[in-house]
Amino acid sequence: MANSVSPDIGVNWHQDIFDVLVAQDISIVAHVPDAGHGPLIKMCEANSNMHTVTLTTEQDGVGLLSGAWAGGRKGVLLMQSSGVGNTINALALPNICRIPFLTIVTMRGEWGEFIPWQVPMGQGTPKVLEAMGVRVFRVEKKEEVGLTVDAAAHLAINTRQSAAVLVSQKLIGAKQFNQG
């Protein structure tokens, strides 16, 4: 995209995330659709070993993945930063039960945002996650997305913690007016 400010054209960071999910045996993919996650959601839906669940609200993803882990399967919650606010009280569940919880958050309201309504939750996202005991990993370069998701997934699964990867708007590309 012309509006992308990240110079590393050629890196398919959606594919890189997908490869990490497969390598780490993460097979339940819960999401509230977001354009930033669009290509990844398509890849997951096309894979017969993955169970993709479209949620009506992000908070349900926390319970869903916790239940799946109790039943022996690992998952990831894909959401936009605006959805993080919906998950706050639900995050008590993985926190207090030490259930591994992994989420990948596409950021809005930070780098080059043009919609004022996106700013409060975008700016609040790392703070509320940290306030609920979630380990936050930020990534701003396309070539580091896969590596970062891999590191966050390892931490979440092996140490039974909640971990979030915040994918910067800097690498996704700020949405412009003509894109709706």
């Binding site: 869903l64 882990w69 039943g71």
Partner: peptide, 8 residues
């Protein structure tokens, strides 16, 4: 949602 994840 926990019950749904468990059922899956």
């Amino acid at each position: 949602p926990f019950a749904l994840g468990l059922a899956i």
